[in-house]
Amino acid sequence: MSGRTHFIVSCTRRKSVPAGNTVFPSAEDAATAYASWREILVKACNEYKNIRAGGLYTGQHWRCAFTAVANTGAELWIISAGLGLLHVTDRIVPYEATFASMPFCHQVYGKG
């Protein structure tokens, strides 16, 4: 079998660096929350030192993921609640984005 193996691991609330002010906002609706989130991220990128995505997350499943990658040579990707799909080498700011307690429905409804 040829080709490269890719592991995609979920983000975790446990992080090596505190989020500071980079916290996903609570808003009455999803559109307002996401617009505010983009502004928060832009500001954070200008104020904070960026770190590699692979250095931000901690915990048991991260140790397992790093071990698997070291043993297989696979690529490691992160599916982040606040930042989307990231490679472990991507530069990011520390953040906190937990959507379980948001006051609005997270589904996006299209027209038609």
Rank of each mutant, 00 (worst) to 15 (best):
A65N: 06
N71C: 09
R14Q: 13
Q60V: 15
Q107V: 13
Y95A: 12
M102F: 09
V69H: 02
D90Y: 09
P103M: 10
G82K: 07
T72Y: 04
W37N: 03
K43G: 06
V23A: 02
A30K: 11
T98G: 00
K111Q: 04
G20S: 04
G84S: 09
E96K: 14
C45Y: 11
T22F: 09
L76I: 05
N50Q: 09
K43H: 10
Y48E: 01
V108S: 06
I78L: 12
E39A: 15
W62L: 14
A31E: 08
A19W: 08
E47L: 00
V88K: 04
A30W: 04
Y57N: 06
T72D: 00
A53M: 04
P94T: 05
A35N: 11
I78D: 02
S101P: 01
Y95N: 08
F104M: 05
I92M: 13
G82D: 00
F104Q: 01
Q107W: 13
A44C: 07
C64D: 13
E39S: 12
P103S: 07
K43E: 10
A97H: 08
A27N: 02
N46T: 03
Y109V: 15
S26V: 15
K49W: 04
L85E: 00
A70R: 15
K111A: 02
G73K: 09
V17Q: 03
G59E: 05
F24I: 07
Y57E: 07
G73W: 08
T67C: 10
S101C: 12
G3P: 05
G55I: 05
I79Q: 10
E47D: 00
R14V: 11
Y57C: 11
Q107E: 14
T22H: 10
V69M: 10
A70V: 06
H106M: 15
A68W: 11
S16G: 04
T89N: 06
S80R: 01
F66T: 03
P25S: 06
A19C: 10
L86A: 00
T89R: 07
A31D: 03
Q107S: 15
N50W: 01
H6V: 15
T98A: 02
W37F: 10
D29L: 03
A31C: 01
V17P: 01
P25D: 02
E96I: 04
E96Y: 10
H87N: 12
T67F: 12
A65C: 07
D90C: 11
C64Y: 14
P18G: 08
Y57G: 06
A74P: 06
M1S: 11
C105N: 15
F104P: 00
V69A: 03
V93Y: 11
V69W: 05
I79W: 13
T32A: 14
I78H: 05
S80L: 07
G54K: 05
G3W: 13
